[in-house]
Structure formats: C-alpha cells, structure tokens
Amino acid sequence: MEVTVLIQTADKAFEILEKAREEARELLYSAAKLTSEAKSLAEKRETRAFLSGAQQSRVALRNFAITFLILFGFWILLSGRFDYFHLALGVICSLLVAYLSYDLLFFNVRLGDFRIRARRFFQSAPWFLGQIFSANLHVAYLALSPKMPIDPQILRFKTKLESDISWVAMANSITLTPGTITMDIREGEFFVHALDKKVAYDLNTGEMEDKIAHVLMEADHVYIQDVLDVSRIFGALK
C-alpha cells in the first residue's frame, strides 16, 4: 500500500518536473525569438530613419526650389520692372522668404499631378461661377422680397474628402456661394449655416463635393486603393 503511494507520488513529481522543463524551454525559446525580433526591428528602424532622413532633405530641397520659383513669379507680377537691379533684388527677397518659410507652402500636398489638377480646375471653374451667380440672384431675391421668406438652419454632414487642403477648398467654396457659410470643420464633419431651404438642398445634393474631389483628385486616390485591394484578394483566391 505504502509502496504504491510512494510510486504514485514519484510519478507525479516526475510529471511536474517534465512540465517545468518544457515550460523553461519554451520560455527560453520565446526569449531568444523576442531578442532576435527586437534586434531586427531596431535594424529596420535604423535603416528606415536613414532613408527617410535622406528623403526628407531631398523633399525639403524640392520644396525650397518650387517655393522660390513661385515667389519669384509673384515678385515679377508685382514689380513689373525688368532691369538687372530690380531682378537681383527680387532674387534676393525670394530666396530670403523661401528660406524663412519653405515648409509652409507645401505641407501636405502631393505634387506629381499638378498639371492634371490645373486643367481640371480650369474645366470646372465655369460651373462654380455659374453656381455663385445663381445663388447670388436667389439671395438678392430673398433680401429684396418684402415678406423675407428666410429659413435659417445649420447643416451638419460628414464629407468623403480626406486631406485638409480639400476640406479647406470645400469650406471656402461653400462660403463663397452666397447664402451658405462654413462655421467649423471638426475631423471631416462640416457645420454649415444655410439661409433657406433651397440653398441647403443645393448643398445637400453633394455636387460641389464631387466636383472638388474631382479637381483635387481625391476620387482617383480612393479608386487606386480599391484596385489594389481587389487584386490582392484575387491573388489569394488563385
């Protein structure tokens, strides 16, 4: 009786020892794996920092050059004198301002598609002007009619635009249209004051948003991302 109990306890003790050994081995393995992962991560981070540092300086140089060119064009537009003295003054002043604020003009803008954007802007400018003209007539009618049929309201809607520059373009074109004023933007949510129902309806159809997304090429960005996702899923299925 006692012998069997002893044997059983010895077995249990051996089992516990085995478990402890396995756990210790797993711990060691995981520790080794973690250290190697940490080391590789640190290496990757170093290389990425190195690369991004080089890229950042290149981007800063490009921004500096483009800012200088834009500012020098602006100077020539302002000055209108083409003798050497004034042109040299313009070069010095543009260099100074570009040095002071080269990171202000291009903060969060993609530059590669500038020509397409400019073409689309000039294509859609007549639509914006027509919209402003018709809204002008409507607001003049509201202001001049003796009953004053206004119905002020605050609209609140989420936009599908993504970058802050397109938010600002959207807000400014809403404010430029008479009868509507952008009050605030909070993380992609617009607060717009509208003077009457027709103006609010025109805004709610979302045509202006589509136009701005087209001009600033927001929709193309989304489109390319969709294609990439679909191709990945297709590859996985194959």
Binding site: L71, V97, L100, S101, L104, L105, I165, W167, V168, N172
Partner: peptide, 17 residues
C-alpha cells in the same frame, strides 16, 4: 480651426514677399 491654419500657411510666404 483647420481653415484658418491652412489659409494662413498658404498666405504667409506671399505676405512676406
């Protein structure tokens, strides 16, 4: 206010020039 910040950022170099 993101409008004020962005507009000021774009305008400041031209104001300085």
């Amino acid at each position: 206010d993101i409008i004020i910040r962005t507009v000021a950022r774009i305008l400041i170099p031209f104001i300085q020039l």
